[in-house]
Design a protein around this nucleic acid. Structure first.
Length: 875
RNA sequence: GCCCCUAUGGCGGAACUGGUAGACGCGUCCGACUCAAAAUCGGAUUCCGCAAGGAGUGCUGGUUCGAUUCCGGCUAGGGGCACCA
């Protein structure tokens, strides 16, 4: 018998070498088995992996290994989201080359990921900063351009004054830049846009088909797309010339039912009419300038008063030619949404009420809440936006809000203003087009040439890739490509005249919007994808990553897949059939008396019945144990994966990462927990050793008659095999681990009670149990599983072993133990054959001593028998 | 402000579609081994109670033979959106 301790630090590298030498995780595109594509969000090569990566990739690897054992041809690739600002910042600080910095980081992190024992097909590795990748991204851009999915337009953009670049709306959080944290300014620039809004409705509708996505993510995307149905209404400007450009104002409203409550029209300061009027009205021009200066931070918006400027214009109410309504320019009206103009109904919209109260415009209640007296219902400081009956609204009086909307829609769509319908029913979306221009060096160049004569000219496909120059200067602020002496000067592809390259590069979210497709044929040189292969592998069956990408990355990828479908690169709409969002890794924080944060490795913990205390290793002074928070450099509550793997091995780290907490919730990293996992590694090793000593040879067949205890062991095996498989299917890794521990606990208990010698039947049962245990742990602890497998006498890698089949006859007991309740309180148990009918159970239950006692002579009113579950005697 | 999610022992959490609440682990306590410690192994561990027994899944009401699970009302914590008309 061999009961030496298992040494993961020796064993793990050995097994990884075996996998690599035998190319076990190489995936062939022409493998005939059913496909399964599992993908974890690829990392940004920041320098080192962190515990969040360990958790993410451990989960994906369990899925990959489990599916492989279940007979699937698994695609499980890895790559690098390698463009982005940190490389440029490092270049600026240390005078290094962004490419060198990035590739050095990749080398470090690749080695770290390999030390985790992930079953990745490294032959498919890609880096988005490599010309062999971004060449195809440029091709996609040009194809999208041709298909009308790209637009160049002047637009008001979010400008990050620190990073000196443009940000998408999604990258502005509380008025601040998502990366630099700077307060974002508004600027007018010409930008490239991807027309994500042309898919608004489809992106919304298809959310319903994503039944293996978290409800939360679908809801967030739904809100982000922000569909609202309403009416565009054209108001004639009072006294305007018939043929004037400024004879009407169009507004968007979702409350046409409140049209008789209108008190004003408000234009956005950026509305064309506002600017037109300001041209010969200096006071208005001043007001517009003031609005432009106003910050867009959350606080600024929160505290900003509603301010307006009376233009002096009046419009005509669409239902009453004699009713004139004043036109204001108001600071709270957004140019980007709807038509950039609204009609104000103060009684039923809080913003409108605030504005009306500030300018003495009054209000007319037109919706009367249920139970209120219409004659006495007044609005003063709080608008009413609920349901009710319409009042003060002529032909709408008495109608519900819903009916009123329908009536107004019907009438206004049918009536005429200047030869066109006065109103149209429309749908508005909050989702806006995706501005991708960035004034940065370390990104994918936009393959466009600007020519004085020919205008905007796409770079001809055969000239792709447009590569980044390597000799760049980072000491100036702004875009290094713009400062480069030669790079941007080219000949126009059409007329050969001197022309200028586009110096903006693409938002890095573009890079990650199609990498999952590239993995299917990653080294193809003449096209982004080969559609047959891409269509075979896609969609990704299981995608795993952080919830922080719920909107940005996932929505962009959904758009990109549609755009790639429209341009013939793939033939599907939804890239990710299954999505799983894992929780963060969190840890206690430690602070010494002078308020400095300490890392976990600088702290010693003492615990007894009175609680836990911490002391600094240096000086042994007491340390305050603070709140549990996401691992971060600022709080120093980080644990380095290298340290853990170096001390305990990868299997222990993986096992602990997946135990305890449900995978979608945060997990608290604790040293005690890791030690528990390390203990279990040794337990399994001992148990397998003991079982191996008593087990039948590999591939032995079952003896004819099995003794009772042999059947009992087989039942244990098949019952736990069944449950582990069920939990794995549902990605419930914490309960997977609990079931495996239950199984090994039961086997240890059994082995402890068993007297020598072992019968042939029992030897067979041990063989089955040990083989099964090794396979059950193999997705989570692959190195240990290999060592156990070898110990059990197997020659080929456990990675090639099929997942055992559950024998239903063994997985299901033929007798059941039913809890017996009297009036809902448990009083006893009844063990009976599985197939007993209700009547037999009822009869037996009423004779149970505990039941008779609890009845105290009373007659049962009713006996509820739930088959295989419970019996309840009701008195 | 609007929308959503969550709440179970000392701690992380388990409980399939309404059916024995607390699986599995961590911690703690007791014991074995040891000169001793570590490691390891065995036992106990929701609360009250010596016990019989009783109470118990944030609070509160309801549906049900039976509720952690379903419904209504609250409280607390977390998240998303936010002058979106």
């Amino acid at each position: 018998m061999m009961n030496e301790r298992y040494n993961p630090l020796d064993a793990e590298p050995k097994w990884r070498k075996v996998w690599e030498d035998q190319q076990i995780f190489l995936t062939r595109n022409d493998d005939p088995r059913p496909k399964y594509y599992v993908l974890e969000m690829f990392p940004y090569p920041s320098g080192r992996i962190h515990m969040g990566h360990v958790r993410n990739y451990a989960m994906g690897d369990v899925v990959a290994r489990f599916r492989r054992a279940r007979g699937y041809n698994v695609l499980h690739p890895m790559g690098w989201d390698a463009f982005g600002l940190p490389a440029e910042n490092a270049a600026r600080q240390n005078n290094t080359d962004p490419a060198q910095w990035t590739y050095a980081n990749i080398a470090t992190m690749r080695a770290q990921l390999k030390s985790m024992g992930l079953s990745l097909d490294w032959s498919r590795e890609i880096a988005t900063c490599d010309p062999s990748y971004y060449k195809h991204q440029q091709r996609l851009f040009l194809d999208f351009l041709k298909a009308g999915l790209v637009e160049r337009k002047q637009s008001k953009v979010n400008w990050d004054p620190v990073d000196q670049t443009v940000l998408a709306n999604e990258q502005v959080i509380d008025g601040r830049a998502w990366r630099s944290g700077a307060v974002v300014e508004q600027r007018e620039l010409t930008q490239w846009f991807l027309k994500i809004s042309s898919f608004s409705q489809d992106l919304l509708d298809s959310l319903d088909t994503l039944d293996r996505w978290p409800e939360k993510v679908r809801l967030m995307q739904k809100n982000w797309i922000g569909r609202s149905e309403g009416l565009r209404v054209r108001f004639a400007i009072d006294g305007a010339q018939k043929d004037s450009d400024w004879r009407e104002i169009e507004v968007f409203t979702t409350r046409p039912d409140t049209l008789f409550g209108a008190r004003f029209i408000a234009l956005s300061p950026d509305h064309a009419l506002s600017k037109h009027l300001a041209a010969d009205n200096p006071a208005l021009a001043d007001f517009l300038a003031e609005c432009a200066r106003m910050g867009s931070t959350a606080e600024a918006i929160e505290t900003a008063e509603k301010r307006g400027f009376d233009t002096g214009l009046r419009v005509v109410h669409p239902f009453d030619p004699g009713w004139k309504i004043p036109v204001y320019v108001a600071n709270f009206v957004l140019i980007e949404y709807g038509t950039g103009a609204i009609f104000g109904c103060p009684a039923h919209d809080q913003r409108d009420l605030d504005f009306a109260n500030a300018y003495g415009l009054g209000n007319t209640p037109v919706v009367c809440p249920p139970g209120q007296d219409a004659a006495h219902f007044v609005i003063t400081a709080t608008a009413y936006d609920g349901e009710g009956a319409l009042i003060n609204s002529r032909f709408l009086n008495g109608m519900s809000v819903e009916a009123g909307k329908a009536e107004v829609n019907k009438r206004l769509c049918a009536s005429d203003l200047f030869g066109a319908p006065q109103a149209t029913v429309t749908v508005n979306y909050r989702l806006r087009d995706w501005g991708i221009s960035r004034q940065r060096y370390w990104g994918c160049p936009i393959p466009i040439i600007h020519c004085e004569a020919c205008g905007v000219v796409p770079v001809p496909q055969e000239q792709l890739p447009v590569t980044l120059p390597s000799d760049v200067e980072f000491r100036q602020t702004g875009n290094p490509l713009d400062h480069h002496p030669t790079w941007k000067h080219v000949k126009c592809p059409i007329c050969a005249a001197p022309a200028r390259r586009e110096t903006d590069t693409m938002d890095t979210f573009v890079d990650s919007s199609w990498y999952f497709a590239r993995f299917t044929n990653p080294h193809l040189t003449d096209a982004p994808t080969d559609p047959a292969t891409a269509n075979h592998w896609l969609p990704v069956d299981q995608y795993i990553g952080g919830i922080e990408h719920a909107i940005l990355h996932l929505l962009y990828s959904r758009f990109f897949t549609r755009a790639m479908q429209a341009t013939g690169h793939v033939d599907l709409k939804e890239p990710f059939a299954g999505l799983f969002t894992q929780g963060m890794v969190v840890h206690e924080t430690y602070r010494n008396a002078s308020g400095d944060w300490l890392t976990p490795s600088e702290v010693r913990i003492e615990a007894d019945a009175s609680g836990r205390r911490a002391f600094a290793l240096q000086g042994d002074s007491p340390v305050e144990i603070g709140s549990i928070e996401k691992m971060s450099k600022s709080r120093r509550n980080v644990v380095d994966p290298d340290d853990i793997i170096g001390a305990y091995g990868a299997d222990t780290a993986r096992w602990f990462m997946l135990s305890d907490s449900p995978p979608d919730r945060d997990i608290i990293w604790s040293d005690e927990g890791v030690q528990g996992a390390a203990r279990y590694v040794q337990q399994v090793w001992r148990l397998i050793g003991d079982l191996a000593a008593a087990a039948a040879p590999p591939a032995a067949s079952a003896p004819q008659d099995l003794a009772l205890e042999a059947v009992a062991v087989r039942r244990l095996t098949h019952q736990h095999l069944l449950r582990v498989g069920q939990h794995l299917d549902r990605l419930r890794f914490n309960t997977v681990i609990a079931e495996i521990r239950k199984f090994s606990n039961a086997l240890m208990g059994h082995l402890g009670e068993q007297a020598e010698p072992v019968s042939p039947g029992l030897a067979f049962a041990y063989r089955e149990a040990a083989d099964t245990l090794a396979i059950l742990i193999s997705p989570v602890m692959p190195h240990l599983a290999e060592a156990c497998w070898e110990q059990l006498g197997h020659i080929r890698s456990i990675c090639l072993a099929p997942w055992p089949e559950v024998d239903p006859a063994l997985a299901i007991d033929d007798s059941v133990t039913l809890p017996v309740q009297v009036n809902g309180k448990k009083r006893g148990e009844l063990t009976c054959p599985r197939d007993w009918d209700t009547a037999a159970i009822e009869k037996e239950v009423l004779q149970l001593e505990a039941v008779v006692k609890a009845l105290e002579g009373r007659t049962p009113k009713k006996v509820v028998v739930v088959p295989l579950r419970i019996v309840n005697v009701v008195v």
